[in-house]
Nucleic acid binder design. Structure first.
Lengths: 252, 252
DNA sequence: CGTGCATTTGACCACCTTCAATAAAGGTGG
DNA sequence: CCACCTTTATTGAAGGTGGTCAAATGCACG
């Protein structure tokens, strides 16, 4: 797990979890993000929001919030990787998404959270009270529009995923997954080109793609044997033939 | 197809499609709906909206809007059943949803419509210009909140569907489908209890559930043989044992 | 009554799952 | 630092679910 630390060296070793009040400095870093909802706010409004927001640090494999729990907070991932999942009553799990820096969660829920969120790596989060956000929606139309845009974007992605689960083969699913992660997790820019950092387990990927661990593993092996990817340095995957990957992903 | 007419006797036989300006009377009927976005509007605002909205009637099996097409309008289904679907590049189709009275479509899209909408039965629609709606979002916060609620609801349903496609067996999928339609399509109240009206084809259901026509048909037969449902009068399905149906749907 | 389309049913096969064994990686304590 | 144990990943063999292909049946409509 050396690579884990290498790519997520954010958290002070002194303590497992920390909660500190946000300051404008941390928010200003955050504002830079293109899809950030804060971009719809004036400086003094950001100040108001930052005053009631917290910077949260969590170690890997910890629960951030649980399905059904009263939804008090909205979160923004600042560093690391978070897993969002739902459970069927019989214990089967569906991983809804893997979140990377810039992604939100906790916005879309009916009273309680409708999914659980757990850290996969060490993670830094911005935690905002949902009440305050919902107030802002009523007050600031531009902010409201931004929230709607984020939700719409999430909806479009979920629809794509539905198509994947409904119609694609195991191989197509894995290729699509690799391309998606490649596009989304640039990991703050310090990833070598064509290298994908996969901090999640095979079980996580399987539950995301609607497959079993074994099938995922086999498909990885096949892709490596066909010289489309390389699995040499473990949590990293190197894409050798991205055109082929795209071809398979789109059903060719 | 007599039953089709019986349950959707709305359209004047004189013409295939009609387009007439909305009036307050038709809007007032519409306002009654609990999730209607118009409920967030004042009377005079509804008047403004109704002035630029149209009541559209379409016969069955007609295209309302096509994937990719410039998204000019937002629609509300007033009667009948509409199918929303997407295409994969290789021709595979994913049915996103079946819409019933009170449901919206055309709201969530990035520039062009991101799905096609076709009529399954004869249909009455309320057609509103998207521009005007997006203006209202900026002007009226309560309206904006309503639109967000509708989008969030759509997202939650899509996530449920993902779980279904990713983790459920053919039998579980069909049972879930029957229960969902049973809950949603009360068909204006003139359906006998425990009777589901299924105007869509087996192909539609298959593409909705991520299965083949044959598998859907087989599962229908099995459920009928097990005395869980009855298929005696064709587009209608009678639920005999709803507890069993729920048990199977939830993975028992 | 015949035509065309949707649905049902059957036979066979492929893909993915399940079950099981092995290998590799990580964590802990001496 | 290494031995031991636990967890995760890989690989193999067998089995089942659902897909594919094909034929038959049913149903609406001319």
């Amino acid at each position: 797990m050396d690579l884990m630390k290498e790519f997520h060296p954010i958290i002070d070793d002194a303590e497992d979890n920390s909660v500190v009040r946000c300051n404008m400095t941390s928010c200003e870093k955050c504002i830079g993000r293109s899809v950030s909802m804060c971009s719809a706010l004036k400086d003094h409004e950001v100040k108001l929001l930052s005053d009631i927001s917290m910077n949260i640090s969590k170690r890997s494999k910890q629960v951030i919030c649980a399905e059904g729990e009263l939804a008090e907070y909205l979160y923004n991932v600042q560093s690391g990787c978070v897993r969002i999942s739902k459970m069927l009553s019989d214990g089967r799990r569906q991983v809804i998404d893997f979140l990377f820096p810039g992604d939100y969660f906790g916005l879309v829920c009916n009273n309680g959270y409708n999914y659980s969120a757990e850290t996969i790596t060490d993670v830094n989060l911005c935690r905002m009270p949902r009440n305050a956000i919902l107030e802002k929606i009523k007050e600031i139309p531009a902010f409201s529009k931004k929230i709607l845009d984020i939700t719409i974007h999430e909806l479009l992605e979920t629809q794509e995923q539905r198509l994947l689960l409904g119609r694609k083969s195991a191989k197509e699913r894995l290729c699509t997954f690799l391309l998606t992660i490649n596009a989304r997790s640039s990991n703050g820019g310090h990833m070598k080109k064509n290298h994908i950092f996969l901090p999640m387990s095979r079980a996580d990927i399987a539950d995301y793609l609607g497959l079993t661990i074994e099938t995922v593993s086999r498909q990885f092996t096949i892709l490596a044997k066909d010289n489309i990817i390389s699995l040499e340095n473990s949590p990293l995957v190197r894409i050798i033939d991205i055109e082929e990957l795209q071809l398979i992903a789109s059903g060719g």
